[in-house]
Write a protein that binds this DNA or RNA. Structure first.
Lengths: 161, 161
DNA sequence: GGCTATATATAACG
DNA sequence: CGTTATATATAGCC
């Protein structure tokens, strides 16, 4: 496609295939998120890879949207449904243990690694956790930037002649 | 966005807004379909517009994927660690479902982000720190692997005929 | 994972 | 709805 061609027909490479799927899935989720935020829609995307792995995206949450889809309008009314415009505040506050959070906040600037004495397996898990965490942070940043960009546009609209 | 900018903040035009949403939704579904066909994945996309109207896409069908999702969700309490997927791979963003991943794991595995209440600048610093940390961990892993590889070679040397 | 050259997607127009 | 000028998405690398 981009940058030459591609031919994900056979397997080409079991590994490349996974990478490609991951990237495209990210793109799909990104688009879903944008659609949610820019149109105040509720969207759930549920994905099963060929291997059977589950990946999902949902706003406000996968479950709430699925519930609503199934006919159960439980508490999915946390977003504006009736009012004129948007005020939807999406805060990823699931179940924060305040204790750990505050403790980590003070220490994440140091982000220790020496003296942890981890074995290889633990190190690998650590690395994986860090990648996931970084993705979370990156996503959160993207969301905030998007929101701010839209706010700036809006302000520019009413400020501009 | 394209061809000038856009400012879908207020209503701009109740009609244009609907058209835009429709187009973007089509694009989202198109991408989902591509992802399904090119990777043999099963995907469901459920969308509720601000007005409450339901639009959905699913392959093989929305219901089948949702059913599978519900099944996977309920029996996901397979207790102990795991063979692979789901915890590390489960996409961040707004993916829901309670992360099982924090109870019996050590504090560094949790490395919370929710409830930390960081502003944009802090988030960026956080992200940068995480990248550095991850590089360090990755380097450490490489060193260890390399050392082990050389050790294996050495053992193989004296073991081999 | 980040970068970058292309391919896609799409907002405004006709 | 088709076209076109831009904005996005992403395949191949590193």
């Amino acid at each position: 496609m981009t940058r030459r061609k591609i031919k994900i027909d056979k397997i080409e490479n079991e590994d490349s295939r996974k990478v490609t799927f991951s990237k495209r899935r990210s793109g799909l989720f990104r688009k879903a998120r944008k659609l949610c935020t820019s149109h105040d829609a509720q969207i759930a995307v549920v994905t099963f890879s060929l291997a059977g792995k589950l990946f999902s995206f949902g706003l406000p949450s996968v479950d709430s949207v699925v519930d609503r889809f199934l006919g159960n309008e439980t508490n999915s009314s946390s977003s504006s449904s009736n009012e004129s415009s948007r005020d939807n505040e999406h805060r990823p506050s699931s179940s924060s243990k305040g204790s750990i959070a505050s403790k980590e906040r003070q220490s994440w600037r140091a982000l220790p690694i020496e003296g942890m004495d981890l074995d290889v397996d633990e190190l690998q898990q650590y690395k994986a956790s860090l990648e996931v965490l970084k993705s979370n942070v990156a996503n959160q940043l993207e969301e905030i930037k998007d929101r701010q960009a839209r706010t700036r546009d809006f302000i520019g609209l009413i400020d501009a002649p």
